[in-house]
C-alpha cells in the first residue's frame, strides 16, 4: 500500500510537471489586442496552471489503478480501506483551491475587467439589428458606419444596444464581449493595444455572439485598429 502510494504520487508529480511545462512552452491562445484582453488571456493561463495538478491527480489515480489493481472476475476481491481523515484532507485541499481561484484570478479579475470609463474615454455607440451592426461616433459626428475603427492607445467606451432582438457585441481579438439588449445600454471600456485589421487578422471582426435568428452567423463587420493620427484622418475622410 505504501509503495503503491509512493509510485502513484510519483506518477502524479511527473504528469503535473510535464503538463505545466507544456503550458509554459506552448501558447495555446491567440494574442489579445486590448489591455483587458491581455488580463483575460492571463486568467486563462493562470487557471490552466491551477488545473494541471488536479487533472494529473485524477489521471494518475485512474491510470495507476487500472494498471496495478486488475482483477479477472467477481471471485477476486479488493482490500477494503477506511476513509479515516482522508475526506477531511480532500475537503480542505479542494476548498482551499476553490477559494484561491475565486479570489485570483476570479474576483480580482472581475473588478479589473468591469472597470468603467474615465473622462478621457472615446465614446463609440454600437447598435445591433437583424443582421448587421451600425457604429456611431457621437463626439466625431459620424453615424451609421459599417466598420468599427478604433485608435490604438486610446481608452474607448463602447455603448452597446439593440434595435430588435438580443445580440452580443464580440470582437474575438480584443477579447471583449457584451450583450446588446433592446431598451438597455451596456457599456464596456478598454484600450486597443496594436494596429491591425480584419483583412490581416480574422479575429478582428465584430461578430454577433447571441443567436439572433436567420443570418446570425453572417452578422459580422470588420474591425480596424489604427494609430491615433490615422484615426483622425479616417474621421475626416468619412465626414466628406
Amino acid at each position: 500500500m505504501r509503495r503503491d502510494l509512493a509510485l502513484a504520487a510519483l506518477l502524479w508529480a511527473v504528469l503535473t510537471g510535464v503538463g505545466e511545462a507544456l503550458l509554459v512552452a506552448f501558447d495555446f491562445q491567440p494574442s489579445a489586442l486590448s489591455d483587458k484582453g491581455e488580463r483575460i488571456k492571463d486568467a486563462v493561463s493562470i487557471l490552466a496552471y491551477f488545473a494541471m495538478p488536479v487533472l494529473a491527480l485524477v489521471l494518475a489515480g485512474l491510470v495507476y489503478s487500472v494498471v496495478r489493481f486488475r482483477g479477472r472476475g467477481p471471485e477476486e476481491e479488493g482490500t477494503p480501506i477506511r476513509a479515516g481523515i482522508v475526506p477531511w484532507i480532500w475537503l480542505g485541499a479542494t476548498s482551499a483551491l476553490a477559494f484561491t481561484i475565486m479570489l485570483y484570478p476570479g474576483l480580482w479579475g472581475t473588478v479589473e475587467v468591469a472597470k468603467g470609463s474615465s473622462s478621457q474615454s472615446l465614446t463609440v455607440q454600437v447598435e445591433g439589428l437583424q443582421w448587421t451592426w451600425l457604429v456611431h461616433y457621437p463626439g466625431q459626428g459620424l453615424k451609421n458606419q459599417r466598420e468599427l475603427v478604433l485608435p490604438v492607445g486610446q481608452e474607448v467606451t463602447i455603448e452597446v444596444t439593440s434595435r430588435d432582438v438580443l445580440h452580443s457585441f464580440w470582437v474575438p481579438a480584443l477579447m471583449m464581449k457584451i450583450d446588446a439588449i433592446p431598451g438597455t445600454v451596456n457599456r464596456i471600456t478598454f484600450t486597443p493595444q496594436e494596429a491591425d485589421s480584419y483583412a490581416n487578422n480574422p479575429l478582428l471582426r465584430l461578430q454577433c455572439a447571441e443567436l439572433c435568428g436567420l443570418s446570425h452567423a453572417r452578422m459580422v463587420i470588420p474591425v480596424r485598429l489604427v494609430e491615433k493620427q490615422e484615426f483622425l484622418n479616417w474621421v475626416e475622410q468619412q465626414k466628406r
Binding site: G61, S65, V66, F69, R72, E76, E77, G78, T79
Partner: peptide, 11 residues
C-alpha cells in the same frame, strides 16, 4: 478514486 484504489478492477 478511493474505491478503485486497492480494488480488484474487473474491466
Amino acid at each position: 478514486l478511493g474505491t478503485i484504489w486497492m480494488g480488484r478492477l474487473w474491466l
